[in-house]
């Protein structure tokens, strides 16, 4: 599998960053995702993204912020190849997603773990079976499934609830189940689209802590959120979208512009 250095397909980091921001060793870092000049207009004519350049090196933790309708979810849809860009290139792990053959899409998706605001759990399956489902439907061998599920349930701290149904779980536990399912393929990139949108502040904090821990394990994390408090408190890289354009890309940043 080809790895791409940040320097080759993407724009120069200095063009997307303001001077003095995150120093970025473009040559030595592996890039998980790169977007270059990406414009996306939907069939109804709405332009959701306009000339977006974004490079995320391996191990990064990125908050994608911006007002409603700014294009955050559109970025995510492009990354999981639910949509293809109207203009520009999206590279994931060095593969141009628009050029991907149909039958290669599933394999690429297994490199991504994704969770949403609504947890998308199957209500009639237990926590364990919800997580195992992701392996079953991708053809994992039976004997590999149980240990893998145990491992991720441990990571998210749901070992004790493994046999409960989603309806018998709190919102936070449901989201942790979804996170476990997203992790079970050992993804290179973990994407969360407003993962705390349905959770109260305390539980939201738990989820963020969990995502930080996952990031510590070496998984690149991209999280779209409106949760200003959390973003400002953890001081990670913040990419702000407005009207389909990146208006700020800052490391160690707050939710709002601070200058």
């Amino acid at each position: 599998m080809a790895m791409v250095s940040a320097a080759t397909p993407g724009p120069k980091p200095s063009q997307t960053r303001r001077p003095g921001e995150r120093p970025h060793d473009a040559v030595s870092t592996r890039v998980v995702l790169a977007m270059q000049g990406v414009t996306k207009s939907y069939p109804n004519g709405r332009v959701a993204l306009r000339g977006v350049d974004l490079i995320v090196p391996e191990g990064d933790f990125v908050f994608l912020v911006g007002p409603s309708g700014a294009g955050k979810s559109t970025v995510i849809k492009l990354l999981i190849r639910d949509e293809v860009p109207t203009k520009g290139v999206v590279l994931l792990d060095g593969r141009d997603l628009a050029r991907l053959k149909r039958r290669d899409v599933p394999r690429i998706r297994r490199k991504i773990g994704i969770v949403f605001q609504d947890f998308k759990l199957l209500p009639n399956k237990t926590v364990r079976d919800n997580v195992a489902f992701a392996l079953e439907v991708t053809g994992a061998r039976r004997r590999d499934i149980d240990p893998a599920v145990d491992r991720v349930l441990q990571v998210v701290g749901l070992t004790g609830q493994a046999n409960q149904l989603p309806g018998q779980l709190s919102g936070g536990e449901q989201q942790r189940t979804a996170i476990a399912r997203a992790l079970v393929h050992n993804p290179r990139l973990f994407i969360a689209d407003e993962p705390t949108g349905n959770l109260d502040p305390l539980i939201s904090w738990e989820i963020i802590q969990l995502l930080l821990r996952i990031n510590d394990l070496g998984v690149t994390v991209l999280m779209a959120t409106h949760n200003a408090e959390v973003v400002t408190a953890v001081r990670k890289r913040v990419v702000a979208l407005e009207n389909g354009r990146i208006v700020r890309d800052q490391t160690g940043a707050a939710y709002h512009r601070e200058d």
């Binding site: 998706r109 297994r110 399912r181 393929h185």
Partner: peptide, 8 residues
Amino acid sequence: IMRLVGAS
């Protein structure tokens, strides 16, 4: 969900 987790 199958599509999201990369089922063929």
